[in-house]
Write a protein that binds this DNA or RNA. Sequence first.
DNA 1: TGCATGTTTCGCTAAATAGCGAAACGTAGT
DNA 2: ACTACGTTTCGCTATTTAGCGAAACATGCA
Lengths: 107, 107
Amino acid sequence: MRSQRTAIQDAAEVFKALGNPARLRMVRELSDGEKCVCDLVAAAGLGWSTVSRHLSILRAAGVVMDEKRGKQVIYQLALPCVSRFLACLENPSLYPAMHSACCGEDG
Amino acid sequence: MRSQRTAIQDAAEVFKALGNPARLRMVRELSDGEKCVCDLVAAAGLGWSTVSRHLSILRAAGVVMDEKRGKQVIYQLALPCVSRFLACLENPSLYPAMHSACCGEDG
DNA sequence: TGCATGTTTCGCTAAATAGCGAAACGTAGT
DNA sequence: ACTACGTTTCGCTATTTAGCGAAACATGCA
């Protein structure tokens, strides 16, 4: 029942979830398409337990969603804007420009 | 000289900077236009020193930029995509949809 | 120069986070 | 039911972060 009571809080959760290199790496991996935890472990270069915790943080923030498939758990992005925003951030040359050509149109 | 060596790291810094309710509130305030620290103190509802620290974090991450004007320091957003992304996050109803109507066109 | 005001840095404490390894849990197959 | 494998939870320690108040620093004006 914390729908608009914490709009900022919720948004902050998303940012906080993305504010970690390991999690960001995983998210970037997911931009490419859905992956099982094993793939994400490889992408993050960390232990299983650590990755699992990171994933639960991303899940709680609503950035990713999981789906059991056979004996694996498949993750995918739940927040497509993230890929776009990420693409923006990874083009530092676009930062200073006061246009958002990277994230959509200028309007 | 850490241009692409830490593309992810840098992006994570941005997210980390935004991953705090107080800082997010300030950033939202800045979406409205440039502000002096005093305005941001009011927006955050925190002490001056705390806000100053938050601002230096946002500045270091490249989210905002500052400019001395008279005896005040004026802040403004340096990353316009942020406003757009924020708008996306604050419309939870748009999350699950696999379109990014919120953050730009679909392409 | 010296005062008043706006802003940042410093020192501190409580709380949150990242990472690991071991153990627990769940599902597929025998 | 048992085994094997994929995934998550638990217990732990080191590091980081949030917040504050006091002090330092900078600027405009007299």
